[in-house]
Simulated scan of single mutants.
Amino acid sequence: MAVPMRSPWLRWTTIAPVVAVVTLAITWGLVLGTVPVIIVAVVLAAAVLAAVHHAEVVAHRVGEPFGSLVLAVAVTVIEVALIVTLMVSGGPKTASLARDTVFAAVMITANGIFGLSLLLGTLRRKTAVFNAEGTGSALATVGTLATLSLVLPTFTTSRRGPEFSPAQLGFAAIASLILYGVFVVTQTVRHRDFFLPVGEDGAVLDDAGGHSGRPSGPETAFSLVLLLVALIAVVGLAKVESPAIEAAVAALGFPQSFVGVVIALLVLLPETIAAANAARRDRVQVSLNLALGSAMASIGLTIPAIALASIWLSGPLVLGLDPTQIVLLVITVVIGGFTIVPGRATRLQACVHLVLLAAFVFLAASP
């Protein structure tokens, strides 16, 4: 006797994003007690897991590198919307919000997700194998974007402090959009094979990853909608949880800027889990696409959005990194280059990147 198939509307991966959005609508703008904060945290975790599931459905349908691009861009667009909204409503106290959020996202992705992917990729075999050409070009683009948008404002002289003049901000925004657009075309059209998983012999593997039963068009569209709903809920609920996070940060004696690091960690959870799942399936290239693609999208989309929003934003816009942050960024790019050049990495390189992430988090908590 055939077992009746369960309706897609009754699956937890469908219910969780809907419940998360309803929870967001109910709790937005409220001061929550201990029990509601715990409930929101549970709903947030469910929304993260649902987002990962639907991202993998979409990725399975469209193949690589489109799959990782969908998740990276979706998360970043929603994150940018949140940053702009907070800056518009927060006034001068949010002058460095864009810088802190973008830098945290770069360090978390380029060291945390990157290192975790390499570590998980070396569990099944001695080395994690990836395409050095594609990954190297991604890291070079991330380094250039970060330098143009976050390092140069510290050294320019048109404005006092780590700020761009309007003309400089406009140039950085246009350059960021051009670089990001060219990279996307390179990744998806001109040199797509540079971003596909490779085997031990360096041969490009089938981007379907050996999985059977590709999702149908309607099923993929359904998952894409639910992915966007889940990501909106994740970012929104992270903001709802921020007062509790702020209280915990203050109780620990950490600087207020550390709240941005915690929220960035929450917002990037879907990409982290998706990258970890890909690495466990021996598809390290997919994980690295997610890591560096997210870092690139975070800069390449945030800076133009902030430049546009600066037309009506009041107060200064602080983009320049401080010396400690610049040192961490330089080390990340240099060490990342040494890791990528051979096209394979060991657990040592993975641990180096994870230690760099730990250094960033520690110094953010204890500057």
Results as ranks from 00 to 15, higher is better:
residue 60 H to L: 13
residue 358 A to H: 03
residue 152 L to E: 07
residue 221 A to T: 12
residue 45 A to I: 13
residue 141 T to M: 11
residue 92 P to C: 02
residue 363 L to H: 06
residue 188 T to R: 01
residue 46 A to V: 05
residue 319 L to Q: 11
residue 330 V to Q: 08
residue 182 V to E: 08
residue 108 I to L: 14
residue 119 L to S: 07
residue 57 V to A: 09
residue 129 V to Q: 15
residue 6 R to K: 09
residue 225 V to K: 01
residue 285 Q to F: 00
residue 19 V to D: 09
residue 87 M to W: 04
residue 251 A to T: 11
residue 337 G to N: 04
residue 247 A to W: 14
residue 24 L to A: 08
residue 310 S to M: 11
residue 313 L to D: 06
residue 50 A to L: 09
residue 95 A to V: 02
residue 157 T to A: 09
residue 65 P to F: 01
residue 127 T to G: 03
residue 303 I to E: 03
residue 214 R to I: 00
residue 4 P to M: 12
residue 140 A to Q: 06
residue 272 T to G: 14
residue 290 L to V: 14
residue 73 V to R: 08
residue 101 T to W: 10
residue 64 E to Q: 14
residue 302 T to V: 03
residue 26 I to R: 06
residue 169 L to I: 12
residue 352 V to R: 08
residue 118 L to I: 13
residue 217 G to L: 09
residue 119 L to F: 15
residue 106 V to E: 08
residue 2 A to W: 09
residue 323 P to Y: 05
residue 286 V to W: 10
residue 306 I to L: 15
residue 308 L to F: 12
residue 149 S to I: 01
residue 285 Q to A: 10
residue 298 S to D: 06
residue 345 A to R: 00
residue 298 S to E: 07
residue 208 A to V: 08
residue 111 N to S: 09
residue 252 L to Q: 06
residue 53 H to R: 13
residue 57 V to I: 15
residue 237 L to S: 07
residue 203 A to D: 14
residue 255 P to D: 05
residue 303 I to P: 02
residue 208 A to L: 12
residue 204 V to K: 05
residue 325 Q to I: 00
residue 6 R to N: 03
residue 131 N to P: 07
residue 48 V to N: 12
residue 135 T to C: 13
residue 92 P to Y: 01
residue 89 S to W: 08
residue 52 V to L: 07
residue 222 F to G: 05
residue 141 T to E: 02
residue 254 F to D: 03
residue 268 L to Q: 14
residue 124 R to H: 14
residue 289 N to G: 11
residue 255 P to Q: 08
residue 44 L to C: 05
residue 232 I to V: 15
residue 165 S to W: 04
residue 245 I to R: 02
residue 254 F to S: 01
residue 128 A to V: 11
residue 334 V to K: 06
residue 4 P to Q: 10
residue 198 V to W: 03
residue 115 G to Q: 00
residue 336 G to M: 05
residue 212 S to R: 12
residue 22 V to Y: 05
residue 201 D to M: 02
residue 286 V to D: 09
residue 328 L to Q: 14
residue 241 E to R: 04
residue 169 L to G: 13
residue 93 K to N: 10
residue 11 R to Y: 11
residue 318 V to W: 10
residue 158 S to A: 13
residue 208 A to G: 15
residue 280 R to G: 09
residue 140 A to T: 02
residue 263 I to M: 12
residue 35 V to Y: 11
residue 278 A to S: 15
residue 1 M to P: 06
residue 51 A to N: 03
residue 212 S to D: 15
residue 58 V to D: 05
